[in-house]
Design a protein around this nucleic acid. Structure first.
Lengths: 213, 213
DNA sequence: ATCGCTGCATACTAATTGGTATGTTCCAGT
DNA sequence: ACTGGAACATACCAATTAGTATGCAGCGAT
């Protein structure tokens, strides 16, 4: 039987639908240019539905960020903490990272680029709590990569530079796809895998010392 | 003597001042959140001055793009067409590219990231002419890198992949600094050079075949 | 049967803002 | 002296839009 009821819905499907629609619009139009009405319209609803589940536009944005980061962390953390050499783990992490970007582009694009500064300015100095949580998640995420990099550097397989100096261009080579990549209907799953493979290969060569491959 | 006059000023100083102020605000707030009033206020002027020199907000934005791209092209083209091996030229191009990003951050950040999509949506389908000019400039600029890469690949010093597959992560490693980098007053010129050196080194390792360095 | 609460839709307000229309000052050439 | 135009400032308008207030249908518990 359907379990419709007047008591509060405990699952988060309505909120997920909203942040999904919002992320697509944020990606295409940016935060400021995305209106609540447009988000509602994309869902075949009106503003009332959106404001029933979220208190403000900024809150929607923050929830997009949180969900995107959480998805990354949930999938990459096991790899980072798993077995294998630093090189093997880093490569698997990079590959998984790109796969997520490609298959969850709207939310990840919003998350990965520095759009939060736009929100700060438009909401004044409020929302700093949620903002800090997001920055914290991102820092933790980057830190996971930095630790693996650091381990590899100490073993002499990665270039001898501070991990933070390597993680920036490393992420750059991968994350830049959120700038240039546009989904095409003709693109097959193999095409996506080829992109992921190329980007991962480039990033690994950038970080490996000379005596590798 | 000063050559003040009632006849039209032929130099472009007023327009340069406007796009400079606008670029700083675009960088911090995004296109949509930047108001003409804010641009004027940053110059200690009012809206009248801005609209005297530009017909619309989009026109200001396009001029920022054009100027940023032209600066890149003017400085990198001589290197691309100059002497040296593909590897030497590409490294000099990358280094000069990062130097420009670091020293002209506001305009370059606006130029380098994909913000033009936001403008498209807000201006409808007009402005497609100026838009195409900018996309053309960007394509030409990337093409200069691709030709050097292709030359190096044919000589066997670069990874054997299509130049377009290599240029994306190559630019990514460099351009990503427009996302993470924040100017600090404590930062010296040497710090900037260290950043440029690291990013360039990473990008070159990503593109070079095994038998190099 | 009805009462209350959830899950919305509808109607409205107030603030922002791109763009325009209209002054106003000041200089150059005559 | 006078005039025309350049380089602005000021005042204003119309459209957009975040957020609120209110209405209302439908279900579940009593």
């Amino acid at each position: 039987m359907t379990k419709t009821r007047a008591t509060p819905i405990e699952d988060d499907a309505p909120r997920r639908e909203i942040i999904r629609a919002a992320a697509e619009l944020f990606m295409d139009l940016g935060y400021r240019a995305t209106s609540i009405d447009a988000i509602a319209e994309r869902m075949g609803a009106t503003k009332g539905r959106v404001y029933h589940w979220y208190g403000s536009k900024a809150e929607i944005y923050f929830d997009v960020q949180i969900n995107a980061m959480q998805k990354l962390i949930d999938l990459i953390e096991p790899i980072a903490r798993g077995g294998g050499t630093p090189r093997e783990r880093l490569e698997r992490m990079a590959r998984a990272h790109v796969d997520i970007l490609l298959h969850d582009l709207p939310m990840q694009k919003v998350s990965v680029q520095g759009l939060e500064t736009h929100v700060i300015s438009s909401t004044g100095t409020r929302h700093t709590k949620a903002m800090r949580d997001i920055v914290r998640l991102r820092d933790d995420y980057e830190q996971m990569f930095c630790e693996v990099i650091d381990e590899g550097t100490r073993q002499g397989v990665f270039v001898d530079l501070p991990a933070r100096m390597l993680s920036k261009p490393f992420f750059g080579a991968l994350n830049w796809l959120t700038i240039w990549y546009r989904p095409r209907r003709l693109q097959t799953e193999e095409d996506l895998e080829a992109i992921a493979e190329n980007l991962t290969g480039f990033a690994m060569r950038g970080i490996l010392k000379e005596q590798e491959r």
